[in-house]
Design a protein around this nucleic acid. Sequence first.
DNA 1: GGTACCATCCATACTGGTTGGTATGTGCTA
DNA 2: TAGCACATACCAACCAGTATGGATGGTACC
Lengths: 197, 197
Amino acid sequence: MTVDKTRQALLEAAFGEIHRQGFQSASLSAILHNTGVTKGALYHYFKSKKALGYAVLDEWIHPYLIATWIEPLKRGERPPLARLKQTISDAGDNLDERDIQLGCPLNNLAQEMSPIDEGFRRRTDAMYQIWLESIADTLREGQEDGSIRHDINTEDTALFIVATLEGCMGIAKNAQSREALLKCGKGVLDYLDSLTG
Amino acid sequence: MTVDKTRQALLEAAFGEIHRQGFQSASLSAILHNTGVTKGALYHYFKSKKALGYAVLDEWIHPYLIATWIEPLKRGERPPLARLKQTISDAGDNLDERDIQLGCPLNNLAQEMSPIDEGFRRRTDAMYQIWLESIADTLREGQEDGSIRHDINTEDTALFIVATLEGCMGIAKNAQSREALLKCGKGVLDYLDSLTG
DNA sequence: GGTACCATCCATACTGGTTGGTATGTGCTA
DNA sequence: TAGCACATACCAACCAGTATGGATGGTACC
């Protein structure tokens, strides 16, 4: 089979279960129950629960990161800061209530697993690096065309921006409130405006 | 006994175990092993694992929040923004490598449990409210004495500040790097400077 | 062209270990 | 002698993981 439907179904269900419960508390039985797949099939495609978790990061969350945060930031006709702000707004708009309640899947896994398992940490760290570079590149582009201040360090600023974005997601998740997300996101956008020069 | 040594030992060990593994994956057996206390004693003081988790929040993390973030911000001789910046710096300095690796205990529990259990969410949310009010009060004090811009909403700004602080902790935790914490913290301090007016 | 063979894709049943929780007993103290 | 502060032993449920077997579809060979 070219599409591996069973494997994809497992990945999707595993993503959902991990998103809800976290990796450690994610139950394989629940994943099997939700997919109708049996344990034999699961262990045919993944050699362990950890391997399934890695695959969720590599094959589900990573593409999502690329699609919603990296691709929209690539050089285009619009000015870099506008692209960055637009990307943030769009990402917020595309979250449904469930996403707000459950938080950022990447951040969830990073926070839960990075102190415990190096395989998870390597993967989440690599994804954050990609994200950071993408934002730093955008900021540098703005410096080159004169639309962004030159007295900021693009990499450090990118780090701060990602931290604030994840922080906003966390605040909104705890408050279980889109309003909190919007208020906090407004803070990020205002901060970005302060980078013009 | 006036101090309830056993109970305190359980709280401390439970805090450590939860800090390392998260609440759901925290093992009562591990807590018992680390304290030398038996299961009978544990269930004499706490009616369930969840009750133990609540007690850790109420009696261990809450006092820590008050001591490191609320008390130092109270009105004093120094200007409000300086107090805020100093409190942040001090909090960062007082973290050891282990704290950086394991992250903010309040944020960890909030992120893990708020979508799953309303008792946890109520507690973490209440603590964030206290934290937010404390920072908002400080900002308002700065507005009153003219040292902070009047065109900012103190509550929204406080929300943004807390989000960035937790975001920085998260970034540092995932990177397992104090350097990342410092870089990110520098971003927060620079942002605070932009509030002067 | 038939067939023997073999890898892929699963299904079922089971295991040892761990989990949170409980029932019951015991010593000590007020 | 009543009750607080434990200790021990036990429980059912659940966990990730495994062993084994069967169906199916393609391929090599006579």
